[in-house]
Design a protein around this nucleic acid. Sequence first.
DNA 1: GGCGTGTTACTTTTT
DNA 2: GTAACACGCC
Length: 720
Amino acid sequence: MPKREPKPFDSLTGKLNGRQRAAVETTTGPLLIIAGAGSGKTRVITQRIARLLAEGVAGKTILALTFTNKAAKEMRERVRLLSDPTRSAPPISTFHSFGVQILREWITLLGFGRDFSIYDQIDKMSLLKEIAREVLGARNDVDLYSCAQTISAVKTGRTEWNAENDLYRPVADVYREHLRAYNAVDFDDLIVLPLELFERHSQVLDALRERYRYVMVDEFQDTSTAQYRIVEAVARKHRNLCVVGDDDQSIYSWRGASSLNMAYFERDFPERREIKLEQNYRSAHDILRAANSVIAHNRNRKQKELWTGLRADRCIEVFFPADEYEEARFIARTVRAIAGRGGVRLDKFGILVRTNSLIAPIEEALLGENIAYRVSGGTSFFQRKEIKDIIAYLKLIANPDDNVSLLRVVNTPRRGIGRKTVQMLRELSAERRESLYSTIQALIHAEDGRVSFKTRERLEEFVGIIEPYRAEFLAPRKLAEKLGRLIDDLNIRGHIVSEHPDNERPARLKFRSVMRFVDMMSAWENDPDVVAPTLFDFLARIALVNRDDNQEESDRRSVHLMTIHAAKGLEFDVVFLAGVEDGLIPHARALEEDESNIEEERRLFYVAITRAKRKLLLSACRTRRVMREVQERAASPFLDEIPDELIHVHEPDEPVEQRDAGSFFDQIRARLGLGRSDCRKRSPTPCVYRSRMIISTRRFFARFSSESFGATGSLPPFPV
DNA sequence: GGCGTGTTACTTTTT
DNA sequence: GTAACACGCC
């Protein structure tokens, strides 16, 4: 980040349009900003914060809440650029990390310990699995996934127990008890337990209201009702609550986001001001027209129409590759062509997909074309098995009551504590009403006929490793150094190597990621912004952050590859949307659940389109490999909602494709002694599409070099 | 009683 | 590509 002088106060609102300026200048009282895609929303929010600071409001009294860590980080940086660095910066966090802060301070009032564990999806599922076995016994026909969803929905007040979901109720009851016993909370608790504190201990809310005089919420359309209740409670007294949102970009209803929040806000803050931002500063005219016409098919929405002054020709192209490999290759080669000849920087490209599984083939093709890329979201680094194991050790060290973490690592690496021993420990700990860890400790010292000498020795070995570190990690700082020693003591390297007996490559890779994890910890604790680097804070951070954000600094100049959900709030000069197919967009699963989900799926498509500034390339495969089988696919019905005249069908001309397209993989295959790629041996799939302008590959690539996108209007030239 | 091996099905989106 | 399960071996 380049260092810049703080802007003087009066230039803060200089380049804003009338409505934006009004939004920035309305610093007190409740305010609703309806901000369409690309309408300069982030700019308005950050300038509004800067304005508050310039008016003399102390940074720490402004609470800004966003939905994702990425958005929080970006906002922090932009506020920093606009404000006086010597003054306190406002805390900008996600709802969930705000929840962690509240709980860290007051959770003991609810009978939890301060060093509670935070369970992610994987921890939660393994706990539920354990409980289902315990409670339902032989009845293993229950769908744990929908069980988890029901528990979450009930907990956050989205539904109630009824005849239909009642079979999950016993599981839910035990689940709650277990979390409490393990001194653990799940993601829902990070929102729900603060609310419980508000209700039962008024001093908590009093303190928060005193602390935060100004509250801002970004992506308001994606907040759940429980989240809204937190915000409302904190802001009720001072009434300086500003919410910013766009109902057309609501794509998280499956996670509890509710359009009711808007109605609640209107009810709770009747004196609010409302400002609509409808001028789009991002996308070229055709892209915006396409987006508008797609979203107009939704019946359930607030009427608005985005407009722009930015003109450019031939912004939208559609391509129908034979399969996902051709699609991936098309994307990689087009990136190469535009970046090389059009002089567009790689980080100006966004490749978006509906599901994480579509990322892999594209990644491969980018690798093949030697294009630097970064993946956001997807299977998180912290979800990898080898990393989860290390984290489980740390969690157990921080919180010995954490049975889920203990069960994960008690026999990893193998130390002869198998199913029978674990079963015995379970029974004993239930009897003694204490955690597994305490039970193990007690067993080592006491005489108990149920435990053989050998088993006792093995348990002693386990505790012998953990115990010294419990004392050490109690003290903050030098955490990475301690972790390094723990990894040595556990002989993680030997363990990983023994897991891959035949080839050492994956073993090396895995151990490298373990080492990278240690480096991340070290980088985190040495960050001057981190005041007290405790083990708890580190664990809380990695529980809530998908990916280490510091990492991104190093690979700045690379293509972004991610799901549409992860792309919300971002913008790119060139956007590829892969897999624009029926069943993917809209996703078959979503419609299966409820036909009316089609509107959210359409919003998702809308969000994807509106990420593009100058060029949008859509592709729909004619066949796609789904799990084991190759399926014939149809194009997304949403494609028909874009006016014909805006779309140019991209048809590669055969000779070029035949010769070049497969070459990289075929060469690899040839080198490995394999046959030619079988992805060309496919059945001819009819892909009947209304006739649209057809352009050849050669002309397509040539155009990028000569006209640089054919931009004719007021769009600035691409930076070289 | 633990562990290695071979089999299965699973992949919507995320804090 | 992987995680969970069943089976038979040590």
